[in-house]
């Protein structure tokens, strides 16, 4: 087991480095001169020679004259020791700037995932058990629609109906502007603003997940051991939850773990539409503002999450299904 994990981790690190190289070279394709950008405000105050000297000085200071591979090595060691560079927009270290959006995203997504799981698992099981009932068919149709509609359309519809026509919830934002208050009051205000995004995120993730759980559960229910269990005279509840559900869990685990991992990455579209200051919107903003140190940091963060997610999925197979022996 330990050897397997060690091997996987080594492999993960390898992939991580390859991806970081690709990303770093990609970001180096951008035309633009960070030194000139930094000196721009001072340009009028200096003579041409002063500017020239200053420019070269700053250039060697920032190490831009070194070969690409040296710069990459410097960047990657900095990143690993927690130095993600400066954000051009906020004029602060990226590591500092990124804390707030990350916290917001985790806060929002914990609710979304909890609500989502609480709805999809029972719904998927129900649909599989009562297959071809009217409710199942309705859910099937709804999930196909939900699966096919882009999230932003669901957002637009939700905003139009709940915020514009009914006026129940605010259109966007995380808090009332200039809101003052702490503790419970603040939480209440935040939740009031987050209800609509949470609804949309839950609805959007519901469709795919429900379909998946239903399919996995249907497969499990069609197996011979279910017939055996029923023939033994076991209670239907036991058959469903102990025999079928446990076996259906294997394919579902991948999805659930990816879902948990998305707690950290945030939803690009939903955060953008509702103007929530989370990772997704922060990423879009950084790209739009050409604040590339932030973009590359967030992108690396996303990659780490994806890699860790893969590892956790593989490991959890062994936990869920004793037949899978991961050490081999």
């Amino acid at each position: 087991m330990a050897r397997y994990i060690a091997r996987r981790v080594v492999y993960m690190v390898f992939v991580f480095f390859i991806l970081s190289i690709i990303l770093y070279f990609l970001f180096n394709l951008i035309p633009g001169d960070p030194v000139a950008a930094q000196l721009q405000p001072l340009m009028d105050e200096m003579t041409a020679e002063e500017y020239e000297i200053r420019y070269n000085q700053l250039r060697s200071q920032m190490g831009l004259d070194d070969p690409l591979i040296v710069r990459y090595a410097r960047w990657v060691t900095g990143m690993l020791s927690g130095d993600l560079g400066q954000s051009h927009r906020y004029r602060r270290p990226v590591a500092d700037v990124i804390v707030t959006p990350l916290r917001n995203t985790i806060f929002i997504n914990i609710f979304a995932v909890a609500i989502g799981l609480a709805i999809t698992i029972p719904l998927g099981i129900f649909c599989a058990v009562k297959r071809n009932s009217i409710l199942d068919k309705i859910v099937q149709v709804l999930t196909i629609i939900g699966h096919s509609l882009p999230h932003f359309i669901i957002c637009l519809i939700a905003i139009y109906y709940f915020a514009v026509i009914k006026g129940w919830f605010p259109v966007s934002g995380m808090n009332t502007p200039n809101f003052e208050g702490t503790g419970w009051e603040l939480f209440k205000d935040t939740m009031y603003h987050l209800t609509l995004p949470l609804m949309v995120m839950t609805a959007a993730s519901l469709a795919g997940m429900t379909r998946y759980i239903r399919a996995a559960m249907s497969d499990a229910l069609g197996m011979d051991y279910i017939k055996t269990a029923r023939a033994k005279g076991l209670k239907e509840k036991v058959v469903i939850f102990s025999h079928a559900w446990r076996n259906a869990l294997l394919p579902i685990v991948t999805l659930i773990i990816n879902w948990f991992m998305s707690i950290f990455s945030g939803s690009l579209v939903v955060e953008r539409v509702f103007n929530l200051h989370g990772m997704g919107k922060f990423f879009i903003d950084s790209l739009n503002n050409q604040d590339y140190n932030v973009s590359i940091a967030i992108q690396m963060f996303y990659i780490i999450i994806a890699l860790v997610g893969n590892l956790v999925t593989d490991l959890s197979y062994g936990l869920v299904d004793p037949r899978v022996r991961i050490d081999s």
Partner: peptide
């Protein structure tokens, strides 16, 4: 490696860097 790239963010980076 390609599969573990987060799809939407990576597509955004590519389009904003190369497509500039």
């Amino acid at each position: 490696i390609v599969g573990s790239l987060p799809f939407l963010p990576f597509a955004m980076i590519l389009s904003s860097l190369i497509g500039n």
